[in-house]
Design a protein around this nucleic acid. Structure first.
Lengths: 229, 229
DNA sequence: TACGGTGCGGAACTCAGTATCTTCGTTATG
DNA sequence: CATAACGAAGATACTGAGTTCCGCACCGTA
C-alpha cells in the first residue's frame, strides 16, 4: 500500500494530465485543483503561478550551477563553464519523460516558450558574470568576449538538449562533450597559456586581411578583435 | 498650433509618465487611460497588452531583418547576419531617449526583462534559420554551428547596445563593427573558401591535443568539433 | 486539557485581457 | 440639406490569474 502522494505532486499530476487533454490555455487553475481534489489556495501555495507547475526547479539549478562554478578547478573559465553546463543537461536527462512532455508544451504555447527562454537567459547571465569575474584584471574589454562565450556555451547546450528532447540523440552526454569541445575550440586562450605547450599550426583562410589581422591580434593578446586603444 | 497627438501617442505618453512616477507594476491600465483622457477599450485597441506600450515595433523589426537577409549579397551567411543586425542597433539609436527610458524599466522590472529577452530570442532564431538554410547542403551537423553563430552575433550586438544604453559608448556603430569583426573572426570559413586566398599562420596554444585536433578537423572540414561518423 | 504550529479551504478582492454592443462624428451620396 | 454609411471611441460585463485574509481541523507536546 503506497502512501498518498503529497498535495504538491497531486497538483502537478493533475496539471500535466489536463494540459495533455485540453491544452495549456484551455485549462484553468480551478480545473487543476478540482481534479486534484484540493482547494484553489493550495495550488498557489505550492506554485507561484500556473506556469510554475511546468518549470519547477530552475531556481535550484541556478544554485547548483553557482556552487559548481564556485568550486571550479583552475582551468580556463570557459572550461569551467562548459563543465558546469553539464549539470543542466543531466538534470533534464534525469527528468526523462517529464522533460519531454514539457518540451511538447513549450514548443506549442508561446507563453511557455518565452518563459523557458527567460530561464535559460538566467543561466547565460550567470555564466557571463562568472567568466567576467574569472578573467578579471582588465575591467572592460573582456566583457564582450565573456558575453559571447556564455552565449556560445548556452546555444550549444540547447542544441544538444533539443536534439535529445526530440529523440534524435542516442548519447546526449557525448554529444554535449563534442559540442563543448567545439565551443572551446573557437576561443584561443592566450591568457592561460604558459610558455611550454606551444604548437605551430598551418591553415588556409579566405578571410579578408582586416578580419584576419583582428583574429591574429586576438590570438596574441588574448582579446580578439579589439583594436588597441 | 500643433495638431492634437493621436490617441495612440497620447496613451504611450501617459504610460511612460506614470511608469516613471509610480513604477510599472503600480500603474494600472485604468490609470493610463485616465491620464490620457481615453477609454479603457481604446487602450487595448492600440496595444495588445500593457507590456506592448513599451515594446511597440519588434514585429516590424523582424520583418525588416527578414527582408534584409532575403536580399543579402553573396557573402558568408555570418557576414550577412552581422550586417543585418546593424538594423536593430540603428533602430534603437533612432529611438534615442525612448530606448533609454525603456532600458531603465527593463533593468528594473523582471516581467519586462523577460519580455525583452523573448523578443531578442526571436531575432536569434531568425538568424539561426537563415544561416542554416544558407549553408544548406548537409542538413544536420551545420545546425550546431549555425546556432552558435547566431548566439554570438546576438550576444555581441546586445553587448554593444547595452553599453550605449548606459551611456558608455561614444560611437556605438563603430563598436558594433568591431564586435562583429571579432565574432566573424571566431569562425573559420572553409566552406566559402576558394583555392586562392590561402594563407599560413603560425601560433602558440596550450589547448590539449584532443581539443586542438577537434579544432583542426573543423578548419579542414568546415565543421569543427564533430567527430566523423 | 490547553496550546501553538501546520496544512488546507473559503471568500472576496484586484487587475489584465476579451467580447459585445452602443454612440458619436465625419464623410459620402441621394 | 438630409440621411446613410463608416470608422473611431466608449461602456459594460465577463473570464481567469494571482493575492489577501480569515477560519478550521489535525497534529504533537506541555
Amino acid at each position: 500500500m503506497t502512501t498518498k502522494p503529497s498535495a504538491r505532486d497531486r497538483l502537478a499530476q493533475a496539471a500535466f494530465e489536463l494540459f495533455d487533454e485540453h491544452g495549456y490555455e484551455q485549462t484553468t487553475v480551478d480545473d487543476i485543483t478540482e481534479r486534484a481534489g484540493l482547494g484553489r489556495t493550495t495550488f498557489f501555495r505550492y506554485y507561484r503561478s500556473k506556469e510554475d507547475v511546468i518549470f519547477p526547479d530552475h531556481d535550484l539549478m541556478v544554485k547548483q550551477l553557482r556552487d559548481r562554478l564556485a568550486s571550479a578547478s583552475r582551468q580556463t573559465a570557459l572550461v569551467a563553464v562548459s563543465d558546469a553546463v553539464r549539470l543542466v543537461l543531466l538534470h533534464y536527462l534525469e527528468e526523462g519523460d517529464v522533460a519531454r512532455r514539457r518540451y511538447a508544451l513549450t514548443s506549442t504555447v508561446p507563453a511557455l516558450r518565452d518563459r523557458e527562454i527567460a530561464s535559460v537567459a538566467r543561466y547565460q547571465r550567470l555564466f557571463r558574470d562568472f567568466i567576467t569575474d574569472w578573467t578579471g584584471e582588465d575591467g572592460e574589454p573582456v566583457s564582450l568576449r565573456a558575453e559571447i562565450m556564455a552565449a556560445a556555451v548556452v546555444a550549444a547546450h540547447n542544441h544538444v538538449l533539443r536534439r535529445w528532447l526530440r529523440g534524435e540523440a542516442a548519447d546526449p552526454l557525448a554529444d554535449l562533450d563534442d559540442a563543448m569541445r567545439q565551443v572551446i575550440g573557437l576561443f584561443p586562450n592566450a591568457a592561460a597559456m604558459p610558455d611550454d605547450g606551444t604548437a605551430i599550426v598551418a591553415f588556409r583562410t579566405s578571410q579578408d586581411l582586416q578580419t584576419l589581422i583582428s583574429s591574429l591580434r586576438g590570438i596574441i593578446e588574448g582579446q580578439p578583435g579589439l583594436p588597441g586603444r
